[in-house]
């Protein structure tokens, strides 16, 4: 990874690293990536199905029933900024 990719990654994840952190992270990332590349041929997974869930596949659905136990006041109790029942952010220009 180079600095340009890292800059994009910071933007994408709404984070900023210090110069020193960037250096440390780049070393870490590149070693992780080359390690994975080195392992790539250790096991051929071409015909292996990916496994997202470790338990057996089962369908889990719920009935379409409305429950509304939480009040807006409670939900906004720890909000940094609210107004007239809305959460607030700086104006988003459309």
């Amino acid at each position: 990874m180079d600095r340009e990719i890292l800059r994009r990654l910071e933007l994408l994840n709404q984070l900023r690293l210090t110069e020193e952190e960037k250096q440390t992270f780049l070393e870490f990332f590149n070693s992780k990536k080359s390690n994975l590349e080195a392992l790539d041929n250790a096991v051929n997974t071409q015909n292996v199905e990916r496994m997202v869930h470790v338990m057996p596949v089962m369908t889990v659905v719920r009935e379409d029933v409305v429950k509304q136990p939480f009040s807006r006041d409670d939900l906004q109790r720890s909000a940094p900024e609210t107004d007239e029942g809305y959460w607030c952010v700086p104006r988003v220009v459309e």
């Binding site: 984070l15 952190e21 990332f29």
Partner: peptide, 21 residues
């Protein structure tokens, strides 16, 4: 960006960036 940068530590930040990539 400022909220996340100020509130999160470096291990978490690194993990986020690694995961994103």
């Amino acid at each position: 960006t400022n909220s996340r940068t100020e509130a999160f530590g470096f291990l978490l930040k690194s993990t986020i960036l690694l995961g994103s990539e």
